[in-house]
């Protein structure tokens, strides 16, 4: 059964499965160790003493590529991406992940192999990387590093803004640890997400970027200080996860690869279309497009054009006047029909009542006589043309009883003397 329809075939809201949208996707790292030749790094865990190793991108056994961030995360055999060393003196290091389409992100998590950085930011793009907005900041010095207050209260007014926290900075574990950002956590409208366009927008992202800004806070004690210091300063992450759902606005239960572009798109139902089912299918504009909710699927409805038009447009005024039932206006009515729904015959034609209005020959030409008729428009129902004095017949093509044809086209029938 299709989750987008109930057992009676009525449309109902449907949503794609919850997934790790990052899994298997490419991550662009601004810095990766060993990319410019082998380099030495030293790590220290809680239990063991400091040990040094070599990172070499050309040797698979010693490489720590960015692809390790989104591969299968096996806790018994951790594969870690690792930045170049000396990051304490270097500019920011960033990890950029393209999700390929809009997702509604529930959380972003970063599982560290190295110690957690003192300051990092998570940002998102909603336009495939053209522009970026902050999603969340972590720092022990929020004001100094990011110019934001620490742990600022989240209210209805600012619930679509990034906040800064030092919640990640617990001393233990020294190395490793998970930093997870829950996009709706603490946001007042989260309990009524369905009717909060602000939060629906807030959780929407096409790309995620994690930027490590500072490994250690100034003055923080540094093990092995002085001795090969740079080799200890690097970022290492085993897993970057983006938990969420493919954004389909409640009109699809899955996303599929498009055949032509290979990109991910929603498998739209409810007569919707677009990568995110964010518009109605052509000719289905009788109601305005709306996101589906738990209570109402807001299915797109075909315009009623009685089979005489292939295109229509939506008119909000008419929709409101109809009591929010129908707002479609048919365009280019064919078969000599006219009107909003192509529901009557255009001028010069009349309705053949023996055929339904949807029949392609439902409208017949008036065929008013060029001389006998006073005009070209006939009665819409009967087909009777307006006849000149003394003329008769549906098309005004005969002289009435007691009249005879004259030679004048102005008065074609004159009374018999």
């Amino acid at each position: 059964p299709d989750p987008c329809y109930d057992e009676h075939g009525a449309a109902r809201r449907c949503i794609p499965d919850f997934v790790n949208a990052a899994f298997g996707k490419e991550v662009r790292a601004s810095s990766t160790c060993g990319a410019r030749g082998p380099n030495r790094y030293c790590a220290r865990s809680e239990e063991s003493a400091r040990t040094c190793h070599t990172c070499d991108a050309s040797d698979p056994r010693r490489a720590h590529p960015a692809s390790y961030l989104t591969d299968l995360n096996n806790p018994h055999n951790l594969t870690c991406w690792q930045s170049e060393t000396g990051v304490q003196r270097a500019p920011n290091v960033s990890l950029t992940l393209s999700l390929g389409k809009k997702f509604e992100v529930t959380y972003v998590s970063v599982q560290f192999c190295s110690r957690r950085p003192d300051s990092m930011a998570i940002s998102k793009s909603m336009d495939y990387g053209k522009t970026w907005v902050p999603f969340q900041f972590y720092s022990t010095q929020c004001r100094k590093v990011y110019g934001r207050p620490s742990r600022a209260p989240i209210t209805k007014q600012n619930e679509q803004e990034a906040v800064c926290t030092d919640a990640h900075a617990d001393a233990r574990p020294l190395s490793g640890g998970l930093v997870a950002f829950s996009t709706l956590d603490g946001r007042p409208s989260a309990h009524d997400f369905d009717s909060s366009p602000v939060l629906q927008d807030w959780v929407t992202a096409t790309d995620i970027r994690v930027t490590f800004s500072r490994l250690r806070a100034p003055g923080e004690p540094d093990e092995g200080e002085g001795e090969d210091e740079d080799a200890q300063h690097f970022y290492a992450v085993s897993d970057l996860q983006v938990g969420g759902r493919c954004k389909c606005n409640g009109h699809a239960s899955r996303c599929v690869r498009e055949r032509e572009s290979g990109g991910l798109v929603c498998d739209c139902k409810h007569n919707t279309a677009g990568a995110e089912c964010d518009r109605c299918k052509p000719f289905h504009y009788d109601r305005p497009w709306q996101r589906a909710t738990a209570r109402e699927a807001h299915e797109c409805v075909a315009c009623n054009c009685n089979l005489h038009a292939r295109r229509c447009r939506f008119n909000m005024e008419l929709y409101k006047l109809s009591g929010r039932k129908s707002g479609g206006v048919c365009l280019n009515c064919r078969h000599n029909t006219a009107g909003r729904h192509c529901h009557y015959c255009k001028e010069g034609y009349y309705r053949d009542m023996s055929k339904p209005i949807s029949h392609r020959k439902a409208c017949k030409a008036c065929d008013c006589h060029p001389v006998g008729a006073a005009g070209k428009t006939c009665n819409q129902t009967t087909g009777q043309c307006p006849c000149k004095d003394g003329v008769t017949g549906i098309t005004c093509n005969r002289c009435a009883k007691g009249y005879q044809q004259s030679r004048s086209p102005i008065a074609p029938c004159i009374k018999i003397p």
């Binding site: 006589h369 060029p370 006998g372 005969r398 002289c399 044809q405 030679r407 086209p409």
Partner: peptide, 24 residues
């Protein structure tokens, strides 16, 4: 009784040339 159809050929179009239907 069937009344005869108006015979276009019987009309004198001299003064009404612009009204005369185009013959297909």
């Amino acid at each position: 009784e069937v009344l005869p159809t108006l015979d276009m050929a019987l009309f004198d179009w001299t003064d009404y040339e612009d009204m005369k239907p185009v013959d297909n």
